[in-house]
Amino acid sequence: MNPQVLIDGLMAGALYGLGAIGVTLTYSILRFANFAHSELLTFGAYAALALSSALGALSAGLLEPIAPFSFGWALPLAGLVAVALTGLLALAVDAILFGRLRHRRSSIIVMVMASFGAALTLRSLIEFAFTSKPAYFTRELQIALPLGQGMRATPDQLLSLALAAILVIGVHLLLTRTAIGRSMRAVSENQALAGVVGVDVRRVIRVVWLLGAALACIAGIMSGLLVQLRPYMGFDLLLPLFAAAILGGIGSVPGAMLAGLIVGLAEAATVQLVGAEWRTAVAFVILVLVLLLRPQGLLGRAQA
């Protein structure tokens, strides 16, 4: 097998991992599979695109690539604002839709269906606003650097990988070392008891939306930078994200990252060994295998 598989798989896997961490966190706290999570990814990417174009129009210098990368300062600046906007969008959807259903004690499946409706709306509105034509953050070409053993990666790819690693460690520390992280784990295990102990569950839910949205936005920007932007970019990631979240074990951040890498590497290997046209089947096969063999996931705890 070509060692480049490792790089390709790690790249895709880091992306899946970031997205799956958002899925797994919101899932463990809100207790339903959010089909609209992928649209936060798409929204974040397009928000960053619109903002960085606007910044570029204000000052062309901001579009000047920061060597050795392919993008200028406009993108990271726009990315920060896009993270905030994506968080606001998540809070708004929660206020309009999920919060009300939660308040009414709707069943899991009603929540899932609502997320499905929200996803459809968001995706189509994005398509309406930006058309289905692929878009790009930058047209700059990058030369892949040799890494030895016949492996190559562009500076953008290496940066994304490093960013993903930093974010995963950051989220893990947040969950294990801080008061809000403790509250999140408590709510995820037993919401009623968390309230009794003094945890403001509604605040925890808001924080989880913000965190999930921020990670989704960054994953979206990474995907847009490394591949391209399309209104369906998030939708196409939905199955790998769910597969990774379930494989990792719902609620487990290290599990989601590890599973994201597994899905990414398995896809890259499939492309090499079987053929690129079967790449999207990998996530489904992994999903079926997990549900069949270990429904609680790799690092998850067994549920009754």
Binding site: R182, R185, E189, N190, A192, V199
Partner: peptide
Amino acid sequence: FVPQTENIFATLSIRENLQLAADI
């Protein structure tokens, strides 16, 4: 209040259970 069942966080350590309460 100490509920009858499920009155501790099983996935947290003893220290974390107490720290969680102390966070307020």
